[in-house]
Design a protein around this nucleic acid. Structure first.
Lengths: 146, 146
DNA sequence: TGTTTATAATTGATATATCAATTATTTTTG
DNA sequence: CAAAAATAATTGATATATCAATTATAAACA
């Protein structure tokens, strides 16, 4: 029994698409801000929108492992994009704050990210987008079944 | 200017879908073959189908960097799934061969991968699949424009 | 032919992914 | 309340991702 060529499956197409988007997006981002990855930018964006988030919650939204998130945030603290302090209400979680440097980067980065998304979706109709999300959701939920 | 919540974009949906599929697929695979990742399985599958492939070509199909592929293949050689020998026709590239152990794994793994794909696509119509691939292709090509 | 240029693979450095084990702190419960 | 269970974060080990630099070989070309 042979596998149909793995490069012909829809999973291959999904993966290649998201990878292209990441490369494309990272390139634009690097032109504007050195020293910042897409994922680090995402962390800033999440924290900006939900300032009370714990590392664990951010990790979940960004599809990262907790351990990875710890290390990412360590780096971002070292690079002075974030500050970690003790959360007195629950000393297991930290309080994370975006530094002024982080806020600046976020300001630079925001229009770039918006533009990236727009360019990546050029010529894709609203209808197609809805259909795309619906099909992805089906696949995702199939993978979640016990 | 605020970013629309990053978790609401279609890119987020694409990424989360492929990650779910990978987890799902890896879990099934690990149950049957310890010591084998999806990507290592892919390398076996590509080599099985196209025995003359160079590391570079495999890397491209599997969306890996050449450096990553070198290290992956090193590991697979160490674990005796693959054998590397010199290609006399072009001494820059290696000849890669699947060992008997590798062939066995491939045999075990093939029906599992097929089943994974099938399960993940349950309830997705042919029409939806075609539409999905078409939209992804649009996005991908947008990201490739200079 | 000898020299430049291109190609395949490797290596080093650093970041991230992943799993399992550990620590420090709540929360639950008996 | 004290012991047990749960939770958030960290750490260690190993694999992979990524970029830049390097090595070995082959191809192009003057």
């Amino acid at each position: 029994m042979d596998l149909p060529s793995p490069s012909a499956t829809v999973f291959h197409a999904i993966e290649s698409t998201i990878k292209e988007y990441r490369k494309f997006s990272q390139k634009k981002l690097s032109n504007a801000v050195s020293d910042m990855t897409i994922d680090q930018g995402l962390v800033l964006a999440f924290l900006d929108r939900y300032p009370e988030m714990s590392q664990k919650e951010i990790a979940a939204l960004a599809f990262k492992d907790n351990a990875s998130m710890t290390r990412m945030i360590n780096l971002m603290v070292k690079k002075e994009y974030l500050e970690r302090s003790i959360n007195k209400l629950n000393r297991r979680r930290y309080k994370l704050e975006i530094t002024p440097k982080g806020k600046n980067v976020l300001k630079t980065l925001t229009p770039i990210v918006l533009d990236n998304r727009e360019k990546a979706l050029e010529g894709v109709t609203e209808e197609e987008l809805i259909q795309l999300e619906a099909t992805l959701k089906k696949i995702k939920s199939n993978c979640n079944k016990p």
